[in-house]
């Protein structure tokens, strides 16, 4: 696993590492028992401050997703992948069909994004932080 730290998108490197790890956990790129790259490796490959990487790992640890093992590194504890959230799930199929109807009705990509965001807001507004991270706007 390698983090892609984009220095131009305004999201702090710390949040990019948290988000990309969670994304990897959702997609099954990382599974329980896997070791996250060490702060030294992230520093060398992506020129990220090691304290930033460690801070991101502490945040993931606080959420119960990873655990540090002294002298060995940081390991994945649990996955975020859900059977019903994969791209082969019925839910995904319904979404693809809906997108196709939206495009047929003449909606542009931005119109669709606005509708999805609005519906998501309505459904998950009182929900937990998970809702915020899926929209990509972490409210930290």
């Amino acid at each position: 696993m390698e983090f892609r730290i984009d220095r131009r998108n305004g999201v702090p490197a710390f949040q990019q590492i948290v988000q990309q790890t969670k994304q990897a956990l959702r997609l099954g790129v990382l599974v329980p028992g896997d070791r996250l790259p060490t702060a030294k490796v992230v520093a060398e490959v992506s020129a990220v401050n090691p304290n930033t990487t460690l801070k991101a790992y502490r945040e993931l640890e606080r959420e119960g997703l990873v655990e540090p093992r002294p002298g060995q590194g940081t390991f994945v504890r649990r996955t975020l992948a859900r059977p019903s959230a994969g791209t082969d799930s019925p839910l995904y199929g319904e979404l693809v069909a809906w997108m196709s109807r939206a495009a047929g009705a003449g909606l542009e990509q931005e119109d669709v994004a606005a509708l999805v965001a609005s519906a998501m807001e309505k459904q998950y507004a009182t929900g937990t932080a998970t809702a915020a991270t899926t929209t990509g706007s972490t409210g930290e």
């Binding site: 730290i5 220095r7 702090p12 490197a13 060490t38 702060a39 030294k40 490796v41 520093a43 060398e44 490959v45 992506s46 020129a47 990220v48 401050n49 090691p50 304290n51 930033t52 990487t53």
Partner: peptide, 30 residues
Amino acid sequence: MGTLLGEAAERGTTVLMSTHVLAELEDLCD
């Protein structure tokens, strides 16, 4: 910077560096 930060990660070296490149500070410095 990767080399430098990797060394700092491994040995816990304290780094004090002057720079004009404000845009890069956020990732490099804590």
